[in-house]
């Protein structure tokens, strides 16, 4: 295994970490309209992720930065090629940061309501668009001889990619619903469990179709194994949710995300961005990567820092591990 293959795995790990963590906080954002009935309930939802969403989002910045460092050509082609969808994601993420931070900064109900709308839309849209983006990466896009994206934005909105978007949206919503059941008390908790059944079944149908399509078009033995794990974990999450074991259900919905994203990366390897025009023009882990020296430096940095990050982020989750309900929400 060469260093650029190690880095392919590390980039996959960063995206998996991002989707596992931000997955449920996107889901919670969507639930502010789907599950919450009034303002106190919306606040319960927002506060289940209050202390942690910011740290979750850094996984994206790290995935972006690490791709830049380890696979400059991948970074360059991906972000210049997916220009408009990425622009939409960035705008959403900017507004989303502020909607959490600024919502409670004034007591004016209209101000709060506007930011709550913002939380919903800026969680829903990126949850959908990341699926579109990844489906396109796996499926291959029009990459020309120079390694640049030669298609337009409409090429990115093909049926396979749109299905991918629906899968991430529903999967993240399901993951968020299970998270809310785990983190809340009272009425909202039991309603979350009921909703988890619906969102879980929708996710199962969409994800099965998408992953089988992926397996058929670009899979191999390894990706098939990941597909099976993803499907089994999703069914397990549904079952555990029914039997009220919320902690385990959350772990299983998390494993679903891990396995599904891992499957996409397995289907992708050894390419990082296949060209649909000519396979010879595909970007691969080998031809898009940085020099061995850079990869070595970055391996040291990532090897030391990633475990440390996991420890202190894990500690944050431990500190805020208590369930909350409407009774815990202060008046102002």
């Amino acid at each position: 295994m060469q260093l650029h293959d190690v880095w392919f795995v590390l980039i996959a790990v960063l995206w998996i970490g991002y989707f596992f963590l931000e997955g449920f906080d996107f889901g919670v954002g969507v639930l502010t309209k789907l599950l919450a009935r009034d303002e106190p309930e919306r606040r319960v939802l927002i506060n289940t992720i209050g202390p942690v969403w910011d740290g979750n989002e850094v996984w994206l910045l790290t995935a972006g930065g690490a791709t830049f460092a380890a696979f400059p050509a991948w970074y360059a082609t991906l972000f210049s090629g997916f220009y408009l969808p990425l622009l939409a994601i960035l705008v959403c993420l900017i507004v989303r940061v502020l909607s959490f931070e600024y919502r409670a900064k004034r007591s004016d109900p209209r101000w709060k309501r506007n930011w709550e709308h913002a939380i919903f839309w800026t969680s829903l849209l990126p949850a959908f668009l990341w699926g579109v983006a990844f489906a396109n990466i796996v499926h291959g896009v029009k990459i020309n001889e120079a390694g640049d994206y030669a298609g337009n934005v409409l090429d990115l909105l093909n049926p396979y990619a749109l299905l991918g978007g629906l899968v991430t949206l529903s999967l993240f919503t399901f993951h968020g619903t299970v998270f809310v059941a785990l983190k809340t008390l009272g009425d909202i908790r039991s309603r979350a469990r009921v909703l988890a059944r619906t969102t879980g079944l929708i996710t199962a149908a969409l994800a099965a179709a998408f992953l089988i399509w992926t397996q058929a078009s670009s899979g191999d033995g390894w990706s098939l194994a990941a597909l099976i794990v993803a499907v089994l974990a999703l069914l397990a999450a549904l079952g555990l949710n029914e039997s009220g074991r919320e902690g385990w259900a959350f772990i299983c919905s998390g494993v679903t995300i891990v396995a599904a994203v891992a499957m996409l990366f397995l289907a992708l390897f050894p390419d990082v961005m296949p060209s649909s025009l000519d396979p010879a023009w595909s970007l691969t882990a080998a031809n898009a990567s940085s020099s061995p020296y850079t990869l070595k430096v970055m391996t040291w940095v990532a090897g030391i820092m990633t475990p440390l990050v996991l420890v202190y982020q894990g500690w944050t989750y431990w500190v805020f591990s208590k369930r909350i309900g409407v009774q815990n929400i202060p008046a102002h």
């Binding site: 850079t294 820092m305 990633t306």
Partner: peptide
């Protein structure tokens, strides 16, 4: 990005990680 990523990307990734 393609031209300098090998050099310029490293401090950016370190910034995110650290």
């Amino acid at each position: 990005s393609r031209f300098v990523g090998d050099v310029f990307g490293a401090p950016l990734a370190m910034e995110a990680l650290l």
